[in-house]
Computed example of a mutant assay.
Amino acid sequence: MKTDIHPDYQKTTIQCVCGNTIEVGSTKQDIRVEICSKCHPFFTGKQKLVDTAGRIERFRKKYEKFQNQ
């Protein structure tokens, strides 16, 4: 491995807007993010699936004949 070409790898903290703090290793110091796994709707179970223009129904109707075989 070549010397003096790699950035400094150090322990740092990631701070979310919700107040969650995570300690990780990184080349940057004190990272701030807007959303994390503690407040993201996918991980909290508050995610809403939006069916725009009935796409799910159209898909099911289109392929229902293959389901019945």
Rank of each mutant, 00 (worst) to 15 (best):
K38G: 11
K46W: 11
C18A: 01
I5W: 00
T12D: 07
C39L: 05
G25I: 04
E23L: 01
K11L: 04
Q15R: 07
D4V: 13
H6W: 05
I5Y: 02
I31L: 14
K48W: 05
T44G: 06
D4E: 09
S26C: 13
T13F: 02
I31P: 00
H6K: 13
D8M: 07
V17T: 14
I14E: 02
K48P: 08
K11I: 13
C16D: 09
T3L: 03
Q47W: 07
V17K: 12
V24Q: 04
E23Y: 00
I22Q: 13
K46H: 13
D8Y: 06
R32S: 10
I5F: 03
Q10V: 07
Q29I: 09
Q10H: 12
E23N: 10
V17Q: 13
D4Q: 09
N20G: 00
E34H: 11
Y9F: 14
I35Y: 06
D30V: 04
T13W: 03
V17G: 07
D4H: 15
R32D: 04
S37P: 07
Y9G: 02
I14P: 06
C39T: 02
T27E: 08
T44S: 14
G19F: 05
G25D: 11
G25L: 10
Q29M: 10
I14A: 11
K46F: 13
K11D: 09
R32T: 01
T44Q: 05
V33P: 05
F43Q: 09
T21C: 05
P41Q: 04
Y9W: 09
H40W: 03
G25W: 11
D4K: 14
H6E: 15
Q10P: 04
I31F: 00
S37W: 08
N20S: 14
K38H: 11
G25N: 12
K38C: 14
T27A: 09
I31A: 02
Q15I: 02
K2N: 15
I5K: 06
S26G: 12
K46N: 14
H40P: 12
